[in-house]
Design a protein around this nucleic acid. Sequence first.
DNA 1: AATAATCTACCTAACGGTCGTTAGTTAAGG
DNA 2: CCTTAACTAACGACCGTTAGGTAGATTATT
Lengths: 193, 193
Amino acid sequence: MSAELIRDVALVHFADKGYEGASLQDIATDVGIKKPSIYAHFKGKDDLFLHVANYVFQQEKRKMITLFASRKNYSLEENLVYFFDWIVEENKHNEHAKFLLRVSYFPPAKLYNEVMRIVNPFFADMERLLAKYMRKHSSVENDEKKYLDEALAYITIVDGAVIDLIFSGEDSYYRRVRAIWPIYFKGVQTINN
Amino acid sequence: MSAELIRDVALVHFADKGYEGASLQDIATDVGIKKPSIYAHFKGKDDLFLHVANYVFQQEKRKMITLFASRKNYSLEENLVYFFDWIVEENKHNEHAKFLLRVSYFPPAKLYNEVMRIVNPFFADMERLLAKYMRKHSSVENDEKKYLDEALAYITIVDGAVIDLIFSGEDSYYRRVRAIWPIYFKGVQTINN
DNA sequence: AATAATCTACCTAACGGTCGTTAGTTAAGG
DNA sequence: CCTTAACTAACGACCGTTAGGTAGATTATT
C-alpha cells in the first residue's frame, strides 16, 4: 500500500525535522511520487501528521504490553535490569523513539490539543502498566504508597537515561545506567528492610 | 537597547515553536517594529538564532557557577537537596530552559554544527563542575570512580525530573523528586559503608 | 556656534522562493 | 463503467531577504 509507505517516510521526516521543518515536497520525493499525490491518501499535512502520531504511539504501546506479558515469570529485579537493554534494542532504529519524544515534548503549536489527546493517555497507560506490574512483583507487603514511589522513581531514572541515549548514544546511556542502577537497587532494598 | 529586546522576544518564539516554526514577522510584531528592521541588528534569522543560543547557554552556565560558588560551606547532602528547589526557582519563567532543551535535543538541521559547538562544551562543563564539587565534598576516601558514578547518577536523576518539570509542571516534578531522592540517598550511603 | 557630514534605527516596497492546497486530467484495474 | 492513484498546472499565502529611503541624533568641520 502506498499510504503506508507515505506514512513511514513521513515518520522519518517528522522525527528528524519536526512538523514545521518537514515538507510534503521532500516526503513525496522520497516516496517517489509527486507532492499532490499525497492528497489521494491524506486530507493534508495535519491529517498525515496525526496519522503518523496515532500509528507510532499505538505501536509503541503494543510493544510495551507484549514485553510485559512475555516476561511475567522473571523476577522484578531481572526485568527492571532487562528493560534497560530492551530500550536500547527498541531504539536501534530510533526514528519511532525520536518521533515519540519530539511530539511529546515539542508538539506542533497548531495541533497541540489533538496531539495531547494522543500523548497523555499513552504516558498514563505506561505508568499504570508499570505500577501494576510492580505491585504484583513487589517483595514488600501491600504498602500502596511504597511501590508507587518505586515505579515513579524507576521511571525518573529511565527518563534521565533515555534522554542521554537518544542524544548522546548507547555508550553514554550505559554509563548512566551503570552509575544509577546499583544505587537505586541498594536504596530500594535498604528502605524496604 | 532594541537588539536585546529583539533577542529576548526571539528567545520566547524559538523556545515555543522551534527554529522553523518561529517567523521573523511574528517576532517583529511582538517587539513592535517591522520585519526588515531586524536586519539593522542581526544579519538574518540564522544570526539571530545563534545569538540567542550563545546568550542562553552562556547565561545558564554563569548561573550555575555562581550557585556552586555561593554554597561552598554547605554539606553535600544539603546542596544536592537544595539544588532541586533551585532548579524550580530558575525555571519559574522557563523559556530559557525550554529553549536550552529544545536546542540541545532537536537542533535545527541546517545549523547542526554551529549549534553543537555551543551545546557540547556546555554539558561537558556542567558535568565537570559537578564532579569537581562532589570530589571535594565526598565523604568516602579518594575512590576516583565512586564519586564520578555518584555525580553521573545524580545528573541522571535531575534530568529525569527536570524533563517532567518543564512539561508537566512543578507538582509532577516534586512527586518524582520525593520518590527518587530517598532511594538515591539511602543507596549511596549503603554502598559507601 | 553654526553648519555639514555621518550614523542609527527605523520605514515601505518588493523580490524570488517555498509552502500547503486545489482543480482538472489521465491511465490502469476490477 | 467507475473507482483509484497517479499526474500537471497553478493558486494564494507566507517565508527570509534586499534595496532604497527618511527622520533624528551624533559627530566633525568650518
